[in-house]
Amino acid sequence: LTVHVGNVTYHFDNPEQAEEWAKRMAKKYQGQIHVKDGQFRIE
């Protein structure tokens, strides 16, 4: 699973971990989480 934050990409084996990280990053950067094809993108 991949989480994109700006132009930085993080890889996770565990979906719960990826989702948790995406939520934390979205809160930190006050962005929206977009989920597409098993990838999380924070914008």
Rank of each mutant, 00 (worst) to 15 (best):
L1H: 15
M25Q: 03
Y10D: 00
W21Y: 09
A18R: 03
I33T: 03
H34G: 04
A22P: 00
A22Q: 01
I42D: 05
R41I: 15
Q30S: 11
K28T: 04
A22D: 00
W21P: 00
D13H: 07
H34Q: 11
Y29G: 02
N7T: 11
T2M: 09
I33C: 14
E43Y: 12
I42A: 04
E19P: 02
Y29Q: 02
G31H: 08
H4S: 12
F12H: 00
V8L: 11
F40H: 04
F12Q: 00
K27C: 15
V8R: 14
G31D: 03
H4V: 14
L1R: 12
Q30W: 06
I42L: 03
T9S: 07
N14E: 07
L1A: 15
A18H: 01
Q32H: 13
V3I: 04
Q32V: 14
W21G: 00
H34R: 09
E20D: 09
A18E: 01
Q39H: 13
K28S: 03
F40Y: 13
M25W: 07
N7F: 11
A26W: 06
Y10V: 03
H11K: 10
M25F: 08
P15H: 12
K36T: 12
A18C: 10
Y29A: 02
E43R: 07
V35W: 13
D13G: 07
M25C: 14
A26L: 06
H34T: 14
Y29M: 07
M25T: 02
F40I: 15
N7Y: 11
G38F: 05
L1D: 03
R24G: 03
A18G: 06
V5H: 06
E43G: 06
H34I: 15
I42Q: 03
R41T: 14
D37H: 02
I33G: 02
F12N: 00
A22R: 04
H4K: 11
Q17M: 11
F40A: 04
K27I: 13
N14K: 10
D13A: 08
E43A: 07
W21V: 01
N14M: 06
E20A: 14
M25K: 01
H11T: 11
T9D: 04
K23M: 11
Q39F: 05
E43M: 09
V8N: 08
Y10Q: 01
W21H: 02
K23C: 15
H34L: 13
E16P: 02
A18Y: 05
F12Y: 01
Q30N: 14
F40R: 04
M25P: 00
Q30I: 05
R41N: 11
H4M: 13
V35Y: 15
K27A: 13
K36D: 09
T2L: 11
W21N: 00
E16K: 13
K28Q: 07
F40M: 12
P15S: 12
V8E: 07
Q17Y: 09
H11Q: 08
Y10P: 00
E43K: 06
G38K: 03
A18L: 06
D13V: 08
P15Q: 10
A22N: 01
Y10L: 04
